[in-house]
């Protein structure tokens, strides 16, 4: 399919450019423990998880007050580094139909929050993808696969949804997902 695409040379250039960037920036802060898994899917867009990796630092040093206030009513405020900039742009452009809920904001709040999310988005996302759900990204699926978490856990009403990060990560709201703080509810 790609072969017949007129944009193919451009695609090569873009991928090559991405590889270049990822080699220089991402390699340095990759967590060691992830290395073995990356072998199979690291080459497609550069970087681990086929290029769908969360940011190297998730802890929000300077949380934006508007974001904290407006994005934490229905679920925890998900820290920006969990998704790439393009995901946040798309998500913020569709708040009227936000996962089945109306989450509309007035224009000035939406603008401020979008800027904060985009500025602090994942710096390790190399793939040209932009999922709306954190839980659909390759890094999330890999970290929460059936080796890490038994399928029965997701049926526990205390977990309810994979998007319910703080059910297992007590520091989720601060962007702290460190392994020593993970507790799966019984």
């Amino acid at each position: 399919m790609l072969k017949t695409d007129k944009k193919f040379p451009l695609a090569i250039a873009v991928v090559a450019l991405m590889l270049g960037i990822s080699l220089s920036a991402a390699q340095a802060d990759d967590d060691r423990e992830e290395g073995y898994r990356s072998a199979g899917n690291s080459d497609k867009h550069g970087g681990k998880y086929g290029g769908e990796n969360r940011g190297s630092s998730l802890q929000t040093i300077q949380a934006n007050a508007k974001w904290k206030q407006e994005c934490s009513n229905c679920h925890i405020a998900y820290v920006p580094g969990l998704l790439p900039a393009e995901s946040w742009r798309k998500l913020m452009a569709g708040l009227d139909k936000h996962f089945g809920s109306d989450a509309t904001l007035d224009a000035s709040d939406a603008k401020e929050i979008t800027a904060y999310l985009v500025d602090n988005a994942s710096n390790r996302w190399r793939a040209p993808t932009a999922p709306l759900r954190i839980t659909e990204s390759a890094w999330f699926k890999s970290k929460h696969d059936s080796h890490e978490i038994s399928p029965a856990v997701w049926k526990n009403p205390r977990v309810k949804s994979p998007a319910n990060c703080q059910a297992c990560h007590s520091g989720a709201e601060k962007g702290d997902f460190s392994e020593d703080k993970v507790r799966i509810p019984k």
């Binding site: 009513n73 229905c74 309810k160």
Partner: peptide, 9 residues
């Protein structure tokens, strides 16, 4: 409690 997410209200 939010019907979708379970978050306390």
């Amino acid at each position: 409690k939010h019907a979708d997410t379970g978050k306390a209200i």
